[in-house]
Design a protein around this nucleic acid. Structure first.
Lengths: 220, 220
DNA sequence: GAGTCATTCAAGAGAGTGATTGAATGTAAC
DNA sequence: GTTACATTCAATCACTCTCTTGAATGACTC
């Protein structure tokens, strides 16, 4: 066979890339960097991993072309490379939810639980936003909010929630969102608010997926 | 944190799935099964791997929910599970082509080579097919062709090509395709035909991607 | 320019992966 | 039933991956 090699070479590269995505911590780092650029130290805090370990994962992501680092004074700030990273992970997620039984079970147990209102999709939400019929609640940390959020959203973390209830109009429906489809923050917020009598739904996706879909994002 | 676990569990499952895709031979097996259901023996032939090795890869794919086997007489025939498998791999491929430098180079070197006509996309091809302006050439083995092919395509393998030149109308443009974007068969066929004066292009994707996009597929 | 701080590098222990070999299973054919 | 055949299982070895530890780098600060 004259030209079987290039295909195998390309498959080897695809496989290699897939193995880079094949680690839960790296997926979490990608999710975090999809919210905002972050220094290694911040990633260390938010993942709970050791410093050196985060650094090593970042090296692997860098070698695969998924992140780039830039120096900012004393720290090195990492950011996601441009490219369809969020889309590829979404493809994996769709596959896992469809074909991996355990994933279906987990999603059912934690996210599609009876008693919770059904999550709202991005397209439907955008429609409701046009009519100004909805209050948007961003449950992520302030720096991630600052790096980009849904237009008009207010940023309230879970800890602040109780003290800032007055900011929510009683009647309007609230839609809470956070980092991604598996982020529990918005789910917890929705439950807490619902207990207090608000009408709350959770956005099915997070900010990165919203942005990747080409929907508008507000900086501030 | 009350509910950090489910997200990590889900990431662990995504990562595990990604590692299953993270092997070149398994990607090749997936590509082959995306053409047609196949017994282990056939996969052994077409991949060039050992019997036991193919079997083990199939076990892993099965455990991940990506393939299922059914007994057919003496042999066990594997097929791709329903679900967005081709889409997920395409997502990986798009990411690799965009972000992994080596992949970009390889594609450039072998597939986007100057002197070759630019590949045609699925949407454009479908349009040209409506006008009946194009001869479709399927370069895959007969059994894969039989399991599904582009409507009206003729099946000519590389070995038969020379003897069956008479089947190609001189004037009409020929579009050759095979298993996927990295399949060399259609590229080789296009080159061979072009040397003989035909106007030939290569379909950028293969049959699985065509099918996944919802375009019509003919059985026979 | 010495000290401090964020990050990376290097080395090693432990677990997991991939290919090979040969034996074991289960169905079909005679 | 015994035999043949397609496939899987089990055991093994080499290799890779992940995390930990402690040292090294390199840029800012006083």
């Amino acid at each position: 066979m004259s030209s079987l090699t290039p295909k195998l070479l390309l498959f080897a590269e695809l496989a290699s890339l897939s193995r880079v995505l094949g680690n839960p911590h790296r997926l979490e780092i990608i999710e975090l960097l999809a919210q905002a650029d972050m220094a290694v130290e911040v990633l260390t805090e938010r993942t709970g991993l050791s410093f050196a370990n985060v650094s090593q994962h970042l090296q692997q992501l860098k070698k695969a072309g998924l992140v780039v680092g830039r120096r900012d004074g004393k720290r090195i700030v990492y950011q996601l490379s441009p490219g369809p990273i969020v889309e590829a992970v979404s493809g994996l997620r769709a596959l896992a939810e469809h074909n991996v039984a355990r994933v279906g079970d987990l999603v059912q147990t934690y996210f599609d639980r009876p008693g919770d209102l059904e999550a709202i999709g991005a397209a439907e939400l955008l429609e409701r936003m046009q009519g100004d019929a909805v209050t948007l609640l961003d449950v992520r940390p302030a720096d991630e909010f600052a790096a980009g959020h849904l237009p008009g959203a207010i940023n309230v973390t879970l800890e602040e929630l109780e003290q800032r209830l007055s900011e929510f109009p009683d009647k309007r429906e609230i839609v809470a969102y956070c980092r991604g489809p598996y982020c529990m923050l918005s789910l917890d917020a929705a439950r807490a608010l619902r207990q207090r009598g608000y009408t709350v739904r959770r956005l099915q996706e997070g900010l990165p997926e919203w942005r990747a879909a080409g929907y508008p994002v507000q900086m501030s």
